[in-house]
Amino acid sequence: MRYDERAVAVARNIKELLGAGLTTEDVAQYLAAGCLDRPLADSPRCAAELRTAQRRLAGVDERIARLQEARGRLAAHHASVRSGVGPGGDEAPVG
C-alpha cells in the first residue's frame, strides 16, 4: 500500500508531537484543525499548539516542584532514621 504525502506528513507530525510530550487529545485537536497536513518544520505552527505546549510545560514544572518537595521531606526523614540506626543496621540504644 502506498500513502500520499499528506498521510506521511500527518503520521510523522503525530509521532513528533507525542514524542515531545503532548497527549493524544492535544494531537487530535491539531489534526481536526488541519494543523498537521504538512511537515511541521515546513509550515507555520498553529496558535493552539503554543498555548497547549505552554500549558503542558507548566504542568510538568508543577509536578517537578511537588516531587522536589517530596524528595526533600523524604531525604530529611531518611537522615533522621539513619542517625537512629547503629552499626550493622541495628537500632541505636534508646536512653
Rank of each mutant, 00 (worst) to 15 (best):
residue 4 D to L: 00
residue 79 A to V: 01
residue 4 D to A: 00
residue 57 L to C: 10
residue 37 D to F: 02
residue 56 R to C: 02
residue 59 G to F: 04
residue 38 R to F: 04
residue 82 R to C: 13
residue 94 V to A: 13
residue 37 D to M: 10
residue 80 S to D: 15
residue 32 A to S: 07
residue 10 V to P: 00
residue 84 G to K: 10
residue 20 A to T: 13
residue 79 A to K: 09
residue 68 Q to R: 11
residue 94 V to F: 14
residue 65 A to T: 10
residue 24 T to N: 12
residue 69 E to P: 08
residue 32 A to R: 08
residue 33 A to R: 02
residue 85 V to K: 06
residue 53 A to N: 07
residue 31 L to P: 01
residue 9 A to Q: 02
residue 14 I to Q: 06
residue 67 L to E: 04
residue 1 M to G: 13
residue 32 A to L: 10
residue 13 N to A: 07
residue 87 P to C: 10
residue 29 Q to E: 14
residue 19 G to Q: 04
residue 23 T to R: 06
residue 36 L to Y: 00
residue 55 R to C: 02
residue 89 G to E: 04
residue 60 V to P: 01
residue 37 D to S: 08
residue 68 Q to G: 00
residue 42 D to S: 12
residue 76 A to T: 11
residue 73 R to V: 00
residue 27 V to D: 10
residue 33 A to S: 05
residue 18 L to V: 04
residue 42 D to Q: 13
residue 89 G to I: 05
residue 12 R to V: 03
residue 88 G to L: 06
residue 63 R to Q: 14
residue 19 G to M: 03
residue 95 G to K: 08
residue 73 R to M: 02
residue 1 M to H: 11
residue 54 Q to P: 01
residue 56 R to M: 00
residue 55 R to L: 12
residue 51 R to I: 09
residue 5 E to G: 03
residue 11 A to F: 02
residue 72 G to T: 09
residue 27 V to G: 05
residue 95 G to Y: 11
residue 90 D to I: 15
residue 72 G to H: 03
residue 68 Q to S: 08
residue 4 D to P: 04
residue 38 R to S: 07
residue 34 G to W: 07
residue 88 G to A: 06
residue 68 Q to D: 14
residue 17 L to Q: 02
residue 59 G to D: 03
residue 53 A to E: 12
residue 92 A to Y: 08
residue 90 D to L: 13
residue 22 L to I: 00
residue 43 S to P: 05
residue 91 E to Q: 14
residue 82 R to V: 05
residue 3 Y to T: 13
residue 67 L to Y: 14
residue 14 I to E: 10
residue 57 L to W: 11
residue 81 V to Q: 11
